[in-house]
Design a protein around this nucleic acid. Structure first.
Lengths: 252, 252
DNA sequence: CGTATGCTTGATCAATTTCAAATATCGTGG
DNA sequence: CCACGATATTTGAAATTGATCAAGCATACG
């Protein structure tokens, strides 16, 4: 469990800026030439308060981002999945600990190299900005979920938004993979584990979802979930909205 | 009450990029040459969903930033005071409505001009980044407050963090100016107005604060408030921490 | 100086947490 | 492949917190 910058910094990496930063204008490009690091379950990528030296791209797996409060409570700020980035929107130090939920493969790149590369190349900057703004928008959605919604609304939101993020192949019925534990979900939604369980059980009883093992839930009535979730997730869930059996409430 | 982009765009402004953007490397500089616009109480600077065309700097006054949910609930995302900026961390459209709490004087500048100017000048970019990252950090603190803290903890946090932000001239006892209504505070903290009142009354009863009119509260026992607020606000409140009568809990 | 609005307080109610067991699932070793 | 133990999840009942409903009170403004 003790680990900060886990894997060796991969001594001599082939990638070179070579004096012409615009060669490396694309973020994915720069990352692609970095070696893939592997982390086991429960290892930390970095700890809250560490100097924010790197930016990470998750190749595969799931991470939880959290802070521990003085009295031991754990607040999960968010989760990150394969294809997503980590460590983008922070200043000098990381504002949270990033820990693996599943085995994770990721690439890292020095933050200084990123910002250095933006000077000449205006190709990179919009990409970075877009991601930072999306993180901001996600944080604001989270604020609304935590500040205004009740337990059932929060869980419905959670299911819907994770269905949108983690692919699910556009199949029907939609299946959501939830690699994290119920306690993770509770700490993310500002509820207790018992409340999360009760809500899931209720949704199941009412035929809205069908849990399949611990880490997979089939969404059987997306329309009802969307209705419960409120009008959040407008943009993100539009593709899911098209999959509803009957038109959602806001379609009038 | 009807108003989106209120004041005339101040037709021909003297300020020119003049082909050498680095001339205008400093954000405050660029803003300083913009005309000051004035808004009355209750007017909107922009509405949620408006195209994010401008960035604003508040010269004086207070704004509330909020979203209205489908069922009419209002979630206040944050407040902005004189000296702070607005409309920085958003992509294509504003993610919230910005409405004046008091009379407000502000300056605006086209977002396209800002980003255009960053291409050549690396003086501007760090300033923008720092502000965006600070917004992000504030959002994450808000997430923790809403997700993990009880009513008293939330109000204590609110008082402490606003004492830090709105000057208070480093005088003792510290006075906090709260231009917003109790309902605003409630919608910001995810509580009801009654709960906010009760908590304030309790703090008063216990001698931790001394309300002075509706919009001013004197913090009499900052140490106790800090203790209640938990270990959040570490960085921001360090200057306040020095003003405590007795050493705070975490000073052991 | 009166009225509208915002604030405060009290009593009751509902939602969520807490405490306490059961039950299910997963990984492992036989 | 199955049994077992550890861990995660689910369920129930009681306690708590905060919301809701309902008045009173204070303040600011015309």
């Amino acid at each position: 469990m003790y680990a900060s910058h886990l894997l060796p910094q991969a001594a001599g990496v082939a990638y070179q800026l070579s004096g012409r930063p615009s060669d490396a204008a694309d973020l994915d490009c720069m990352l692609a030439s970095q070696p893939v690091e592997k982390l086991a379950v429960g290892e930390a990528v970095f700890w809250e308060g560490d100097t924010a030296s790197h930016l990470f791209q998750i190749v595969e797996g799931c991470l939880r981002l959290y802070r521990i409060l003085a009295d031991g409570r754990r607040a999960i700020i968010g989760f990150r999945f394969g294809g997503e980035t980590l460590g983008m929107a922070c200043q000098n130090t990381y504002g949270y600990t990033a820990e693996t939920v599943t085995a994770v493969r990721l690439r890292r790149i020095g933050r200084n190299r990123i910002w250095a590369a933006t000077d000449g190349a205006d190709l990179l900057q919009p990409v970075l900005m877009a991601r930072i703004f999306e993180e901001m928008a996600a944080a604001q959605r989270h604020i609304i979920v935590l500040g205004q919604l009740g337990a059932e609304e929060r869980v419905a939101n959670f299911l819907i938004s994770f269905a949108c993020r983690t692919g699910s192949d556009r199949r029907r019925p939609v299946a959501v993979e939830l690699p994290m534990t119920r306690l993770d979900i509770a700490d993310y939604l500002g509820l207790t584990i018992e409340t999360v369980c009760r809500v899931i059980s209720k949704f199941k009883r009412e035929g809205m979802i069908a849990p399949d093992g611990r880490h997979r839930i089939i969404l059987k009535d997306i329309s009802a979930l969307l209705h419960l979730a409120g009008e959040l997730e407008d943009g993100t869930s539009s593709d899911l909205a098209g999959m509803t059996q009957r038109p959602p409430a806001w379609a009038n």
